[in-house]
Simulated assay, not measured.
Amino acid sequence: MTTATPAPEPTPEDIARGLADLEHHLAVNTPAPSATSPAGATRETRRVQRLRAEVAEAHQLARLQSDDAPLLLDTPKVRKRRRAAHEAARLHALGQDPAMRAWQAARMRRVVVCAAMVSLTLALAWSTAGVQHFAADGAGAWSPSWVFAWLVEPFMSLALLVVVGSRAYLATRGQPIASRTLVRIEWLFLALTLGMNAWPYLPWVAEEFSLSRLVLHVLGPIVAVAVVTALPIILAAFTDLHHGTDDRLTGLTYGENTHDPVRPPATDTAWPSVIEMPALVQRARALITAGELPATPSAYKLRQVLRCGMDDARAVRDALLAEGMA
């Protein structure tokens, strides 16, 4: 068995040589210091890094704040106001359109007629109790006379509503009924209703006169009289309503009637200036005699039948009214 020979101890020359080799190795492998960082500078702390980031952010914000592009954009509130203004302008322009104005007038006319008929129905229903008290003439409750007395006002009201409803409907269609017979029938029913409601409460009839009771019982018939009187006047005004500012809007109603004996041919572009009003009036009188027009036709009906402009129709209507009053 052999034993290891111990290594010789290094001499001072060996130690000096090793230190020199180590210094050379470190000098070769150690990187050069950065150009932005001074030699021997220590590592940046987190506080320095945060401050450096804040400074960089401030420089960027300063450059962006000098740009006015964000101020040129519309905010949501501005967009909302602009949209509302644009919508209002379009609605206003649409409201000036003759077709829209005609539609609005027709809708309002239906509302007026419905409201008038409902008011008339309620007024006649209000007077039912007063008419029943008059017709029963003191009969006992649930006796035949007492029961049948409740039917007096309804059948008169239904007859009156038939007349008023027919006149109102035909007036909305541009052909109002000008009949004195129907007017007399309306006033007869209303006078009967008013008389039967007021008679038991008149000063010389009632045992103890009360003005409030009299007013309450005549209120229904008075409202009915007001509705029946005002409704034809209102509908006549709706019928004569002119929805446009240019009568050329009505040209489609007569543009193709080249064989009309009153109007010149459609190829004549100057026909509005050569119309003879007496010819239109004479033709309207002939149609009234033949029964194709009512005795007092409206301007709307004359425009439809004569195929003329609204101004001409109004002139013919005024001429016919003047002849009737002469």
Rank of each mutant, 00 (worst) to 15 (best):
residue 2 T to Q: 13
residue 4 A to P: 15
residue 9 E to Q: 10
residue 15 I to P: 14
residue 26 L to V: 11
residue 27 A to N: 14
residue 27 A to C: 12
residue 32 A to V: 01
residue 33 P to K: 09
residue 33 P to T: 09
residue 34 S to P: 15
residue 39 A to T: 09
residue 39 A to H: 11
residue 40 G to Q: 06
residue 45 T to N: 07
residue 46 R to G: 13
residue 48 V to D: 11
residue 50 R to M: 13
residue 54 E to P: 03
residue 55 V to M: 10
residue 59 H to P: 12
residue 60 Q to E: 11
residue 61 L to D: 14
residue 62 A to I: 08
residue 65 Q to T: 11
residue 66 S to D: 12
residue 69 A to W: 05
residue 72 L to Q: 07
residue 73 L to T: 11
residue 73 L to Y: 07
residue 75 T to L: 04
residue 79 R to M: 02
residue 86 H to D: 15
residue 95 G to V: 06
residue 96 Q to W: 05
residue 97 D to E: 10
residue 98 P to R: 05
residue 99 A to L: 07
residue 105 A to G: 10
residue 110 R to M: 08
residue 117 M to C: 07
residue 117 M to W: 05
residue 118 V to H: 05
residue 120 L to F: 01
residue 121 T to C: 03
residue 130 G to Y: 03
residue 133 H to L: 14
residue 135 A to Y: 05
residue 137 D to C: 01
residue 138 G to H: 01
residue 142 W to T: 13
residue 144 P to Q: 01
residue 144 P to A: 03
residue 148 F to M: 15
residue 148 F to P: 08
residue 150 W to E: 04
residue 156 M to Y: 06
residue 161 L to M: 14
residue 163 V to D: 02
residue 166 S to F: 06
residue 167 R to Y: 03
residue 167 R to I: 07
residue 171 A to Q: 06
residue 171 A to V: 05
residue 175 Q to T: 09
residue 177 I to P: 03
residue 180 R to F: 07
residue 181 T to Y: 08
residue 181 T to F: 09
residue 182 L to D: 12
residue 183 V to C: 12
residue 189 F to C: 00
residue 190 L to M: 07
residue 192 L to K: 06
residue 198 A to D: 13
residue 198 A to S: 15
residue 201 Y to H: 15
residue 204 W to G: 15
residue 212 S to D: 14
residue 217 H to M: 11
residue 219 L to H: 06
residue 219 L to V: 04
residue 220 G to K: 05
residue 224 A to M: 02
residue 228 V to R: 00
residue 233 I to E: 14
residue 234 I to R: 04
residue 235 L to E: 00
residue 235 L to I: 00
residue 244 G to Y: 01
residue 247 D to Q: 09
residue 249 L to E: 13
residue 250 T to W: 08
residue 251 G to V: 08
residue 254 Y to L: 00
residue 260 D to N: 00
residue 261 P to I: 02
residue 262 V to M: 13
residue 262 V to W: 06
residue 265 P to D: 06
residue 267 T to E: 11
residue 268 D to K: 07
residue 270 A to T: 08
residue 277 M to E: 13
residue 279 A to P: 04
residue 281 V to E: 04
residue 282 Q to G: 15
residue 283 R to Q: 14
residue 286 A to W: 04
residue 286 A to Q: 13
residue 286 A to V: 02
residue 293 L to F: 00
residue 299 A to V: 03
residue 301 K to R: 14
residue 301 K to Q: 14
residue 303 R to K: 02
residue 307 R to D: 09
residue 307 R to H: 08
residue 308 C to A: 13
residue 309 G to D: 14
residue 315 A to Y: 05
residue 320 L to I: 00
residue 321 L to V: 10
residue 323 E to M: 02
residue 324 G to C: 10
residue 326 A to L: 01
residue 326 A to F: 01
